[in-house]
């Protein structure tokens, strides 16, 4: 999913640098030719990366600890090969070797997934179209918003769960998670701003949006665009129940999406009736069955959540990465409180 960030990072940068938008001349033949050149470049880049990975595994991951940031150079090559999504995955490997006990396992997990992506691309033709779309998205091959918006949408009352804002290389990316009240499924809306451009998606945590949402193609797509809606967003009814009743239901939903798209990195979880717990400075939430999800280490807003909870159960929404939960908003005291930089 976040490979889109990479693509958008580049296109936002381009937009910001060019005083006038580049004239989009529709020339199908030239377009097809450009796509062919790009696909060849990606194939070559991935093949080179595969060879490099094999060398790494043959010589052993132990060498990583003494060689410093070996990923940066590979990442740069993949940017040149027009595979920015893979480049980002490689950059994310930086520092794992210094992350303490079990680092080799964590590194191997990520390398396995990158390898799976290379494999997938190499036999793209033989895969179902949804999986193809997921792979292309993971690699960072851009789709035009107009193309996506031309697809049929899903009408629902979408609850804005909250989100996060990240900044890298002067590009701000805002992730906003929505929850469809009727379809009971999440959607992710990304917005971007380069430099000092204002960042806004007009989506305010805790509001309800009566709108049509178009999902990007994929097997279990989360990323979506909101089609223009005539109805202005309204407040959520205080009694509305949303998300998952307990942790087992939330992790089952996560597993279902992961089974369809192994490269999914974040999954939204809106959880009801959660009790905040803390042990040895590890914070988390627990449901009535005592199942527990722990917050990502270094999560900075556990104390505000405690303040809002007063020790009573609350509803909260967070991003789940398969290991840790990063809370993004809290429903307590009859209102929504977004956490961190999201407004």
């Amino acid at each position: 999913m976040s490979d889109w960030l990479e693509r958008r990072r580049q296109s936002a940068r381009k937009r910001a640098e060019q005083t006038q938008g580049s004239p989009a001349v529709a020339d199908p033949e030239a377009q097809a030719k450009r796509a062919g050149v790009r696909d060849a470049r990606i194939a070559a880049g991935l093949e080179e990366l595969e060879r490099w990975l094999y060398d790494l595994v043959r010589q052993g991951l132990a060498q990583v600890q003494s060689r410093g940031n070996i990923w940066q150079q590979q990442a740069a090559r993949l940017v040149d090969a027009q595979a920015p999504g893979v480049a980002r995955l490689l950059r994310n490997l930086n520092g794992i070797e210094g992350s303490g006990e079990g680092w080799q396992g964590r590194l191997l997990e990520q390398l396995g997934k990158i390898h799976l992506l290379i494999e997938g691309y190499q036999r793209l033709d033989r895969l179902p179209p949804e999986t193809q779309a997921d792979i292309r998205a993971a690699i960072g091959i851009a789709l035009k918003e107009e193309e996506v918006l031309a697809q049929p949408g899903m009408h629902d009352r979408w609850l804005v769960l909250g989100g996060s804002v990240e900044e890298e290389d002067n590009l701000k990316t805002r992730r906003t998670w929505l929850w469809g009240q009727e379809h009971r499924r999440p959607a992710l809306v990304l917005s971007f701003a380069y430099g000092r451009q204002p960042l806004s998606s007009g989506l305010i945590a805790g509001t309800l949006l009566d709108a049509e949402v178009v999902f990007y193609p994929g097997a279990a797509s989360l990323r979506a665009l909101v089609k223009l809606s005539d109805t202005p967003p309204g407040p959520m009814e205080p009694t509305a129940v949303f998300g998952y009743p307990d942790i087992a239901a939330a992790t089952a939903a996560y597993a279902a999406v992961l089974a369809n798209n192994p490269w999914m990195e974040r999954f939204p979880m809106a959880l009801q009736e959660m009790t905040l717990v803390c042990y040895n400075e590890t914070w988390g939430v627990r449901d009535r069955e005592h199942r527990t999800l722990t917050f990502v280490p270094g999560f900075a807003h556990s104390w505000p959540i405690l303040a809002l909870s007063g020790g009573y159960p609350l509803a909260l929404a967070g991003e789940w990465n398969g290991q840790y939960l990063t809370p993004m908003s809290v429903w307590a005291e009859g209102r929504v409180t977004p956490l961190g930089g999201y407004q």
């Binding site: 390398l111 799976l116 717990v277 909870s309």
Partner: peptide
């Protein structure tokens, strides 16, 4: 690398959230 990818996905998709006795407030 293929085995790693398969094993990791198997685990991630199949994991059951732990039950804990972390103290609440």
């Amino acid at each position: 690398l293929s085995a790693a990818a398969a094993a990791v996905l198997y685990r991630q998709a199949g994991q059951r959230p732990l039950t804990s006795d972390f103290p609440s407030f």
